[in-house]
């Protein structure tokens, strides 16, 4: 499908003729987060096809994948200057800005890409992702569904659509798209993590375990890295009563994302189960001090600290946090059940 997409770009027909297969392979390698695998081919192509803009675009993506931001930016500019109407170039450039956390430019480029070609899966996938970030889920869903209708083998569109269902707590639908995403791109640790998270509520415990493990195997720095994989797997292992293994992953989670309340909170809960109350106190207090909640609300912190101090026999602090627990209203859920 990637080859098909590339081969119909007439503007490059002359300067890139003969390089289509290799360029499609490079594009796929970069999509699968394998910039090293693409490196030699791209070097050869750049010598053999010096005027082929597609080579420049893939070089830009390769530089991006290898973390060479300035070079990537320069190459993306060169490509889009050469062909400002190519939606795919705009989409890839937009994704570069997204990874740079330059959300305004990513937003603008994704919108422009879809405007140039409303049928470009890469443009639709990026725009869908950005609309998800802007909490425009229904619009995002429409674009992503269109993207995978055009190209069902676009792993990013499948992944992004999965996240929409995940957010809507529709695990069966989410699983469908995450399964597809990991089959298309087995190096996407995020997709493995999401797949596992959505298999859990479906009671596919072994499937979830497998997905977490696969995700951990490919969780390398780069676009598909997942900082919360150890956290999620640690929680999962705790549910399966594999406490020692759970601790290993939660230990790693607090190293990876120490600013997030949820990781300290979860490790404190595990400490409690392992009757390591002093460590639980330290972790729970860390959680309380974190400003980034990560989905953990004050009520949970108070409840945990109340239990920790009660276990430690510190009556005054236990009472303090139990009083706070009583005074803190439970979260208001949606109107429906």
């Amino acid at each position: 499908m990637l080859f098909a997409t590339f081969s119909v770009l007439p503007v490059f027909a002359g300067s890139c003729t003969g390089a289509e297969t290799q360029l499609a392979q490079v594009s796929k390698q970069l999509t699968l987060n394998s910039p090293n695998a693409a490196e030699n081919t791209l070097r050869t192509l750049s010598l053999s096809y010096p005027d082929c803009p597609e080579v420049v675009l893939q070089q830009a993506r390769q530089a991006q994948a290898k973390g060479n931001s300035s070079q990537a930016a320069e190459l993306f500019y060169r490509y889009t200057d050469a062909d400002p109407n190519d939606s795919r170039g705009l989409a890839y450039f937009g994704r570069f800005f997204l990874e740079q956390r330059d959300y305004m430019r990513a937003d603008a480029l994704s919108a422009a890409a879809v405007e140039k070609n409303p049928s470009d899966p890469a443009a639709l996938a990026l725009r869908g992702e950005i609309l998800i970030m802007k909490n425009q889920s229904s619009e995002a869903r429409a674009l992503l569904e269109k993207a995978i209708h055009i190209d069902p083998d676009d792993p990013e569109a499948q992944f992004q659509l999965g996240t929409i269902y995940d957010k809507a707590e529709s695990s069966p639908d989410a699983v469908e798209h995450f399964r597809k995403a990991v089959s298309l791109n087995p190096r996407d640790a995020r997709a493995w993590d999401y797949l596992a998270l959505n298999l859990e509520p479906l009671d596919d415990v072994d499937g979830a375990d497998h997905a977490y493990r696969k995700g951990l195997q490919v969780n390398e720095p780069g676009r598909y890295h997942d900082s919360f994989l150890d956290y999620n797997y640690g929680r999962f292992l705790a549910k399966r009563n594999e406490l020692a293994a759970s601790k290993q992953h939660l230990d790693r989670a607090v190293q990876l994302t120490p600013q997030i309340r949820a990781v300290w909170y979860e490790r404190a809960r595990l400490d409690m189960r392992m009757q390591n109350y002093e460590q639980a106190r330290a972790d729970a207090e860390k959680a309380a001090a974190c400003t980034q909640e990560g989905g953990i609300i004050d009520l949970q912190i108070y409840s945990l600290l109340g239990q920790v101090y009660a276990r430690l026999g510190d009556a005054a602090l236990a009472k303090k946090y139990m009083d706070l627990t009583r005074e803190t209203p439970p979260p208001v859920r949606g109107e429906n059940r």
């Binding site: 809960r269 409690m272 609300i297 009520l299 949970q300 912190i301 108070y302 409840s303 945990l304 109340g306 239990q307 009660a310 236990a318 139990m322 627990t325 009583r326 439970p330 979260p331």
Partner: peptide, 14 residues
């Protein structure tokens, strides 16, 4: 309920 840890689940939510 709070003191006995039965008010909420161990995840601190009702």
């Amino acid at each position: 309920g709070v003191e006995s840890f039965v008010a909420y689940t161990d995840n601190g939510v009702p």
